[in-house]
Design a binder for these strands. Structure first.
Lengths: 334, 334
DNA sequence: CTGTTAGCGCATTCAG
DNA sequence: CTGAATGCGCTAACAG
């Protein structure tokens, strides 16, 4: 009962392999009677087509690739859930290309994987999640006609799914303003990515619209990780006390957690001494009771596969841009 | 520059495709001179062999499958890190088979994936993580000679990597005993899996060895998830106060977190009113300052791939059982 | 050492 | 409607 091929089925059913192949791909050009007979043999022999052979003949693999900077990030995990669910409905497999190596993002791995994906042809298309693809990289996909969709990133020439960061940052800031805060600090991530830029803009816009002061010394730029949140908060705590903010908006939950650590170390607490709001709504923030801006991660994943599968199947280029709306989740940190 | 095949390379280098194939697989049977020439053409044409075709000819895919009940579990994420790193060194791809569907473990999906893996032959071997494989399922792999290694599970006829749960539970319990606790509760997961049984045994053994009472009303059996931890803790809090334990040992961190919620809701706190210790050392527990038993998840993943790749390459059956040692991580919950 | 040929398992013409 | 032949891109065995 080892390897049963299409030939075994054909012989057993007294037909040619062509016929078997036809019923497999449910072609109309086969009589109901023989179809039934073949189907029965297939079931009896527990036959299933070999993915490699089929892929080679069809020039399709029946699987998609996921390109991600760090599989272990909370953000990705949530997106992955959506991807899984979307994929399930398609009966496609998922190949994971994790750019992260030994806990550090390695740009050479990104390059390496992209090369591999593009030439090995093990996947029919790829979902790049939070990957900051360069224009040149994207073009390579286009040239080779390998469907690509960007999740949580934006590029005008490629289907992308992203979140309205400007709106999210405004919501966060406005929540703080509604709570009557006048001196609000902002711990931002990088400024050379869309997310950082838009969140900054959202923050400033909200303040200006409410006629509240924007204080340079309360705006910090670092990284989206915890250490950076910690460092930035320490800098703020080093300010003269009279310049302290009453509320802090961190551009990511994980930064907020870092900031929280700095706050606690300094003998202060949240929300008594400082109000704190994060961004992302990762699972952790629920346990830490952190107020935050929820990104629709699951939906992004699910929508992402849908777009990708669509573009694989239709194979005519159709660029779809989808902007999702983040929403405020109020917990106990402010 | 679209699809460059081995023929293009051969023509361009004035050799036969056999020669090209040989340099690709670094066979010794090719002169240095032609080898260099071919290599140069390969680089110039940016040629990379098609994975499908190679797989078909070689009967090897160059990728392994991961079978897991829930990609989003913290435990799995950590293991995955190890897997990734191990795989990186082998240049193999990773195909994810997630049995979880719509947030609930679905046994029919397990069946479905196993069938798919076994017949589609898209992967050369599989790593089953925390999968509770039945004897019959394992036998199917053996019959079809598809290498399988179990991670965090044990089956004598298959290479397995697991943790000494008895020892882990003893360590946890002994820590509590060293802290002078006399009435210790145990919130266990299922009792029909090795983990549950061993942890129960470890718990009881530790108590008995120290001549401390084992109280039936303080031993609860549920599930390894948060809800179950919450429920079990509530039951304990419903006991007459005089019967309250002074410490609680939860069989998983996530259960401990559920228990913590119940404790807080009842107006008590940790570690003031109850000492609490968990099991697993997932990332969350660090932030919640939960004392726990650390499972070497990363190592399990890494070791797992190594065993698997070994068995794929050598292809002679060699069953290796590896038991790892868990260790106590003391934080602030006790 | 190197070119040629025969499959790997399947989908897809092309005849019948 | 159906069977036989051809090719997908590559490896391996076989001649030179």
């Amino acid at each position: 009962m080892s390897k049963v091929t299409i030939y075994d089925v054909a012989k057993e059913a007294n037909v040619g392999i062509g016929t078997v192949s036809r019923v497999l791909n449910n072609s109309k050009r086969v009589s109901d009677k023989t179809k039934k007979r073949v189907l029965k043999v297939i079931k009896r022999l527990k036959y299933q087509p070999n993915a490699m052979a089929r892929g080679l003949a069809l020039q399709k693999t029946g699987s998609i690739g996921i390109l991600v900077p760090a599989v272990t990030s909370h953000f990705f995990i949530e997106v992955l859930k959506g991807v899984q669910q979307g994929l399930e409905e398609q009966d496609m497999d998922l190949v994971l290309y994790n750019v992260n190596y030994g806990d550090s993002y390695d740009i050479t791995y990104k390059e390496k994987y992209i090369n591999r994906i593009l030439s090995e042809k093990r996947v029919d298309g790829v979902l790049a999640i939070t990957m900051k693809m360069t224009e040149e990289e994207v073009e390579r996909f286009k040239n080779l006609k390998v469907p690509l969709v960007l999740v949580n990133d934006f590029y005008e020439k490629i289907s992308s799914i992203f979140v309205d960061d400007l709106s999210g940052a405004k919501k966060a800031t406005n929540h703080l303003i509604a709570l009557n805060h006048k001196r609000i600090a902002f711990l931002n991530g990088c400024m050379d990515c869309r997310q950082g830029q838009d969140r900054m803009k959202g923050f400033e816009t909200a303040l200006i619209e409410s006629n509240i002061g924007v204080y340079d010394e309360l705006i910090k730029i670092g990284d989206f990780d915890k250490e950076s949140g910690y460092e930035m908060m320490k800098e703020i705590l080093n300010l003269p006390k009279k310049d302290y903010p009453t509320a802090i908006f961190a551009a990511s939950d994980i930064q907020a957690i870092g900031a929280l650590e700095a706050i606690n170390e300094a003998g202060y607490s949240v929300p008594e001494d400082f109000s704190l709001i994060g961004y992302d709504n990762i699972e952790l923030s629920k346990y830490l009771k952190l107020t935050t801006i929820a990104q629709p991660m699951f939906e992004m994943g699910k929508l992402g596969v849908e777009l990708l599968v669509d573009s694989i199947q239709s194979d005519k280029e159709k660029i779809i841009q989808k902007e999702l709306e983040p929403k405020l989740v109020i917990r106990e940190s402010c």
